[in-house]
């Protein structure tokens, strides 16, 4: 679980990039802004992951899986 709420890009993507060094099949990322949501999705997809986004109360939960 990566909590990147309140952080603006590129921090959230950097955090996900760092987390992905462990090469797990599933990650959850929490952000509270549309821009990092898009950027993390774009990055995860470029790394061969699939991304599902759940939005509630202005926060986005990204479920990133192989």
């Amino acid at each position: 679980m990566v909590d990147a709420r309140g952080l603006s890009c590129p921090m959230p993507v950097l955090m996900v990039q760092k987390a992905m060094k462990s090469k797990e099949d599933y990650y959850e990322v929490l952000v509270d802004n549309k821009t990092p949501c898009e950027n993390v999705t774009r990055f995860a997809e470029s790394q061969g992951y699939k991304v599902a986004v759940e939005e509630k109360n202005g926060e986005f939960l990204l479920k990133i899986s192989k």
Binding site: C9, P10, Q17, T35, E38, R42, F43, S46
Partner: peptide, 19 residues
């Protein structure tokens, strides 16, 4: 589009992201 003049070069180096 989130256009940014420094973001382009930065994302290319950090993430190989060219958008």
């Amino acid at each position: 589009t989130r256009l940014c003049m420094v973001g382009g070069m930065r994302d290319l180096v950090l993430f190989r992201e060219t958008r």
